[in-house]
Design a binder for these strands. Structure first.
Lengths: 237, 237
DNA sequence: CGTGGGGTTGAATTGTGTCAATCAACGTGG
DNA sequence: CCACGTTGATTGACACAATTCAACCCCACG
């Protein structure tokens, strides 16, 4: 499903990442690897195209330039779990030790930059700041993974939906407005939240009825942030 | 709840980790930091003692010398999620970016070795092999976290219990025999698997009825590994 | 202008949770 | 040594949240 894949050799002397001089690590809207460089191989993938298959050998790492991607695992009985959704600036492919346990598929058409894992490792070895940024990125992923464990283990359907909308609202891009356009299908959302499509619909409808959201053609507008937050943020402390 | 906490200064010239000369990275039964060294501060914690509290500032990293520990998150309505159980050789405290999202509590009395995070970072900076081992360890944690997402999102109660027993059976120590002694309570297991205590009991009884396990005084003996595996390993591929 | 796939809604079903009672193990103090 | 209280584990009866099954709608697209 990979459309364009000419192999631009990585120029080791090129500026591989931006903000070298930045005082602190990884602002949320920062690219770990500067997309303006010619480093890595540009890859385009169609909607629903498979970027990584379950069982693929580890070897490549991708940074998303544009679009949305999902990490999915299929198990017996046609059951499916979406591990995470990834967007521009996100990096994936590093999570595998030897084989990929999750497939990665394009939710929308995506543009990626592909690197050999060995190249990334080499850069991390030669550059302390980059290594620390990567480390921070991975630790942040561990954190969001943990938060998702709580959602799947202990939250009700209504709470999951609210948490999901807040999560989507909270990501770096498109956060200022309260208009969310969710690129993924109901099935993707359901498999991310450990629910069925029907329950996702019903809970969205409930939010609509309560006047918390407005649903229009795959686009959702949040009318009552406060209500959403009191539903979805069930943390203590 | 920390009992002994004299602060042994870290000797930078001491051999902080073992197997420097080992050809490959992190065998599963290997300590990332050699417990025989005097590096770090020895800490003992009683049963149910709190090692890290929710909301604590990040700053220390612990390696378990002996005992079992749980990472827990409390949310509204008395609900609780156990993120993971950790055992000898495991390392925790590195998952926080600024504040700890999960508390860490002693399931059994534990002996820990405590390090400043900055010390760990410094060692990683000065030693490539150690840095890569740590990296591998963290990535492995991401993997088990992902597997747990699938369990919580898409497995039935029976499958969760079987998967749990297999997971406990599969950890480096005490794996040769089929006698498991589970140090954690039913409540801990339930909160790890996103179930209730009662369901855990019922499913264990079902396994007992089917002759798959024998339950004796907090110790469980696996009589039929094959049956357990066909229940718990619901992977495709 | 059919056709099909995603989305929405309703009714029936069920797996798991809730509530409650009982039991077993253990420590404690009279 | 034995009543007693405590705490965790087990079991049963019932309730309910979410799934399953099914019908229908709405566009997009050939």
């Amino acid at each position: 499903m990979i459309v364009a894949a000419e192999d631009t050799p990585i120029n080791r002397n090129a500026v591989l990442y931006s903000n070298l001089g930045s005082p602190e690590l990884s602002a949320p809207d920062e690219y770990l690897i500067d997309p303006a460089t010619s480093a890595g191989t540009l890859v385009r993938v169609d909607r629903d195209g498979e970027i990584i298959a379950q069982g693929d050998k580890a070897g490549y790492c991708f940074q998303i330039t544009s679009g949305c991607v999902r990490a999915v695992k299929l198990i017996e009985g046609g059951r499916r779990q979406v591990g995470e959704f990834l967007f521009a600036r996100d990096i994936f492919g590093w999570e595998a030790l030897s084989e990929h346990e999750f497939a990665v598929e394009a939710v929308t058409p995506v543009v990626l930059r592909r690197f050999r894992l060995s190249t990334i490792e080499e850069f991390a070895a030669n550059d302390r700041l980059f290594a620390r940024k990567l480390q921070r990125y991975i630790v942040a992923k561990v954190q969001t993974g943990r938060a998702h464990l709580v959602l799947l283990g202990r939250k009700t359907a209504a709470e999951r939906i609210s948490s999901f909308l807040l999560e989507m609202l909270g990501r770096p891009s498109g956060c200022t407005t309260s208009a969310l356009d969710l690129p993924m299908s109901r099935a993707d959302i359901a498999d991310y939240l450990g629910l069925t499509i029907e329950t996702v619909c019903r809970e969205l409808r409930n939010l609509h009825r309560r006047g918390v959201i407005v649903i229009r053609r795959g686009r959702i507008v949040i009318s009552d942030h406060r209500a959403l937050r009191s539903d979805g943020s069930v943390w203590l402390h």
